[in-house]
Design a protein around this nucleic acid. Structure first.
Length: 928
RNA sequence: GGACGCUUAGCUCAGUUGGGAGAGCAUCGCCCUUACAAGGCGAGGGGCACUGGUUCAAGUCCAGUAGCGUCCACCA
């Protein structure tokens, strides 16, 4: 193996091999063995490219998938992409615009063809990037939400819901995006606080006897006013209720009405009512039977309901013009600054206009009820559990879902109209004609609208499994095991999948919902193009030089004026660009960051740390191979004598395995990552590999002993690679290919690590005695290293050691670990002092009751040793004081459980004994 | 207005039924010891946001305060 770990040189070839050998394939619905384990990939937009959130979530899904596959489960990671109606249409439309054309120039069919064409060429970005991440979904089952079979499911669901009376068409006020010319759902509207004004306008009474002042943030909507409302109990306006007002500018007469909705404290206590352009006014308009005057065209210009002077004017220009007119008429009382929430479309950023149109809706209450119960009953579980509250809060106040969109790209609504305005819903025109006995001479036109993208996404759990056909996959993989996703789409997607899957399969869509945190930048800001703090996972894998990174961050910006700032920031943060850390390091980082926290600040330092971890694994493996590849590892028989260290590393491995599996089962990938990191680096590399050297390089060791150690080296490493594989697929595969043939694992030549069984706990290797023996050895060695470190004694200088107060247990341990201690502590001799035997002036370390003495003569400075002892004593004195205080507290002694008190007593005794020893040392040395 | 979350070492974060404060990175020493300087060995560093309560015992449970943040709803 190369001396240095080079991720670039191993990753691509591994992946191609796995994919071409078909190793990601699920065993199939009717697999003879294995519990079904299924994960649904939240389908990314076809227009998308991989961002940090994808990388993070997909890493977690892949860890679970690989882990369960190795556990022998019938594992399916279902993959696919979403047609993303609005986003995709916008991408292709922008390309057309660049050629000076619009989609209307092409016409609907040609435009849709164009999108398909675009999808074939450019739609695969994200799936090829997923491959770079090492993800292992079953690519053969990859689906697209506009595929024929999924489209069929969409139609089926629509028709069935309509038959059941749960889909209806109605004229209502909707959120209208005047740029896209489509309705959008409540969820697609973002309300941001923005600075605006409050205009106070005086409306005169029709009879000229009085006037009333209304306040508004949208003066232009006065053209659509059909009433002014006051609170019924507001004494100021009692006498005006029922009278009429002459609306300025238009001269229309409108009534003054009374309604509880009005807050007398706010503004002037009088509200202008525009039922066709405000949701609250709409409700009030319905309560009072007010006319609804729509004053806007679909692109939010004034229509012919407005006075001629304003017709065709954009709404914001109209606002200025109206205000000017009001001022001129002397009815503008004042203008206040006012902060208000402005609704904007999440795709376009355009100010959303409440707009009166015909749309299709899903009546949601009947669907919501079983979906709420499924979570309440615990059948579906949120992880972390707390997110269920968010779910309930929304589900309990859920509104009917507007599902029609005035777009071209998407699932066309299966409804047909005749020339009399009758609507027929059915799977096809033929079905509609047959069902309603419509003869060929009745002209039918299909609804122009398409469905909300989330409508098809909602069917994901069962539509991907072949529904409405009765397939074995539906039986096997519904419900899926866990949904891994972000909290931002709990409403958009998760809730809707639960509703639809319950409705159409009677089953839940998934058992667990693991909600991941949101990846932010290092200082906690959301990553966004306009902030210039976006990291591309691929750049962390391959690296990127500074100039390319700057260019990437500053091109194609919505607000080019920010470019200079972003460039400065980027140059400061990445003076050398970004190093290539490789996929395994990035994946490990993602796993290690997946704690329960809902915001995750991405720290580049950690990627580097885990790249170093990869390097550590690489080099440790080189060491193991160096000692085993050309040696006898006992694979084909031969006596094996295991050293204390050999037994210990196996015992330690069992513990690690148990902890790892527990963490994975609880979706604590951070703990899982930490556990294997600690084992690999701090136990396996730092201790075990060092402990093998005294055996392997010892001429006195027997061949059986050496064979036992080599056997342990190669087999622990082999098992460790399998343990690590779900987290770091590439490096483990590459090394395993070399290691496995030397191990005792039985596998087919040429097989990949990813289809090997996950390590299982071997109870015979769990050994508490060995664990505590090595603990003792470690403390012994660290004690001496500590003296060396603080006394500036070269590590290479062999030292004599004297042991005082040695128990029989200490003697036993010493006898089985003598070679380890000699080598790792660099001792030239160990002398056990007899009871009462005089010792020379020494520096001391304490292991339990036993003292390790390093004679000072010629080595250790008296003052330095006194200082070292004083420091250690200081610590012990503090401890003793704390334990004594506790134990002398009458309340503690009489109330705390016996076990706790005993523990405290033992700790006190231990500290006191150590302290006494140090004190004696101190006196001896001070007297020199 | 409603709901939720966060505040622990210089930085980014763990701390699961209350029982002697942890990791990585950064910092400071010493070391090119034939797996690894992307490394080894050793060391320093914390009023656990604040106040009060429960308890023999609180980073952990309860109440409140402050600061930061997210989501939902919304007063024209």
């Amino acid at each position: 193996m190369d001396k240095t770990y080079e991720p670039q040189s191993i990753e691509q070839q591994c992946y191609q091999r796995w994919e071409s050998e078909g190793l990601f394939k699920a065993k199939g619905a009717d697999a003879p063995t294995g519990n079904p384990y299924c994960i649904l990939l939240p389908p990314p937009n076809v227009t998308g490219s991989l961002h940090m959130g994808h990388g993070f979530q997909q890493t977690i899904m892949d860890v679970l998938t690989r882990y369960h596959r190795m556990k022998g489960d019938n594992t399916l990671w279902q993959v696919g992409t979403d047609h993303a109606g609005i986003a995709t249409q916008m991408v292709v439309e922008r390309q057309l615009n660049a050629q000076g054309k619009t989609r209307h120039d092409l016409g609907r069919e040609a435009f849709i063809d164009k999108i398909w064409e675009w999808k074939e060429h450019s739609g695969g970005t994200i799936t090829s990037q997923m491959r770079r991440l090492g993800t292992s979904p079953d690519w053969d089952r990859e689906v697209f939400t506009m595929d024929e079979n999924l489209s069929k499911a969409v139609t089926e669901v629509f028709v069935k819901l309509h038959e059941d009376g749960l889909i209806y068409r109605g004229k209502r006020l909707v959120n209208w995006d005047p740029v896209l010319h489509t309705a959008v759902s409540d969820l697609e509207v973002l309300n941001e606080e923005e600075a605006g004004h409050m205009w106070h306008m005086r409306y005169p009474l029709a009879d000229g006897s009085d006037s009333i002042v209304v306040a508004t943030t949208r003066p232009e909507t006065m053209l659509g006013d059909t009433a002014v409302a006051v609170h019924p109990d507001d004494e100021r306006y009692q006498h005006l209720i029922g009278k009429e007002i002459k609306l300025p500018v238009t001269g229309r007469l409108i009534p003054i009405i009374a309604d509880d909705y009005v807050d007398p404290e706010f503004g002037t206590g009088c509200v202008k009512i525009t039922p066709a352009h405000d949701f609250n006014d709409y409700d009030m308009g319905k309560r009072h039977n007010l006319p609804m005057i729509n004053i806007f065209t679909p692109d939010a210009k004034l229509n012919d309901e407005a006075p001629e002077a304003y017709q065709g004017m954009d709404r914001f220009d109209a606002r200025k013009a109206i205000v000017a007119q009001l001022e001129q008429d002397g009815v503008l009382v004042k203008i206040d600054d006012h902060k208000l929430k402005v609704p904007r479309g999440d795709r376009t950023g355009a100010v959303i206009e409440p707009y009166l149109t015909d749309q299709w809706y899903v009546a949601i209450d009947e669907l919501a009820k079983p979906a709420i119960e499924a979570v309440e009953s615990g059948e579906i579980r949120f992880v972390p559990e707390n997110w269920s509250k968010t779910y309930f809060q929304w589900m309990n106040n859920i509104q009917d879902w507007c599902i029609s969109r005035q777009l071209w790209w998407g699932h066309r609504i299966p409804a047909w109209y005749d020339n009399n305005g009758n609507v027929y819903v059915g799977r096809t025109e033929e079905e509609v004609r047959a069902k309603h006995s419509l003869t060929a001479d009745v002209e039918l036109k299909q609804d122009e609208d398409v469905l909300d993208t989330w409508f098809s996404s909602a069917l994901w759990p069962f539509a991907t499994m072949g529904w409405p056909e009765k397939t074995p996959e539906l039986e096997t993989f519904v419900p899926s095991s866990v949904l891994v996703t972000g909290f931002d789409i709990i409403f958009f997607w998760v809730a809707r999948m639960i509703m639809m899957t319950k409705r159409f399969t009677g089953k839940i869509p998934f058992k667990d919902i693991y909600i991941t945190g949101l990846i932010r930048d290092e200082s906690g800001d959301k990553m966004s193009k306009s902030k210039g703090n976006v990291l591309d996972p691929i750049d962390l894998i391959d690296g990127i030089d500074l100039e390319s990174l700057v260019a990437k961050r500053t091109t194609g910006m919505m607000q080019p004026q920010l470019a200079a700032k972003i460039e400065k920031r980027t140059r400061k943060q990445f003076p050398e660009g970004i190093h290539a850390y490789g996929t395994d390091a990035l994946r490990f980082t993602f796993a290690a960051m997946a704690s329960t926290s809902r915001d995750i600040n991405f720290d580049m330092g950690r990627v580097e740390g885990y790249r170093n971890f990869c390097n550590k694994i690489w080099n440790a493996s080189r060491f193991v191979l160096m000692n085993t590849e050309t040696e006898d590892t006992g694979r084909d028989g031969g006596e094996l004598v295991l050293s204390l260290a050999d037994k210990w590393i196996w015992a330690q491995f069992q513990q690690t395995l148990v902890e790892f599996e527990k963490a994975i089962s609880e979706y604590r990938f951070d703990i899982a990552a930490q556990t294997v990191y600690e084992f690999t680096w701090n136990q396996f590399c730092d201790w075990y590999l060092e402990l093998t050297k005294p055996v392997l390089n010892n001429d006195d060791a027997t061949e059986a002993e050496k064979r036992g150690t080599r056997h342990t080296l190669i087999n622990v490493l082999e098992s460790l690679l399998r343990l690590l594989h779900p987290l770091m697929p590439f490096i483990t595969e590459t090394i395993w290919d070399r290691v496995a043939p030397l191990s005792t694992l039985e596998f087919k030549a040429g097989d990949s690590i990813m289809v090997q069984p996950f390590p299982t706990v071997d109870a015979a290797k769990q050994d508490e005695q060995v664990l505590s023996d090595i603990e003792w050895v470690k403390r012994f060695i660290v004690g001496i290293r500590n003296i060396r470190g603080e006394m500036d004694i070269a590590p290479s200088k062999p030292l004599p050691a004297l042991l005082r107060n040695v128990s029989s247990e200490d003697e036993r341990r010493l006898s089985i670990s003598r070679t380890f201690i000699d080598r790792l502590a660099r001792l030239e001799s160990i002398t056990v002092l007899k009871q009462g035997e005089e010792a020379p002036a020494s520096a001391a370390a304490v292991v339990g009751e036993m003292e390790i003495l390093i004679p000072m003569a010629g080595l250790i400075d008296k003052e330095a040793e006194l200082a070292r002892i004083a420091k250690a004593m200081g610590k012990l004195e503090q401890e003793v004081a704390r334990f004594k205080g506790k134990l002398s507290n009458e309340k503690f002694v009489s109330n705390a459980p016996e076990a706790v008190i005993e523990k405290e007593k033992a700790k006190l005794a231990d500290s006191e004994s150590q302290l006494a020893k140090l004190k004696a040392q101190q006196e001896t040395i001070a007297a020199l």
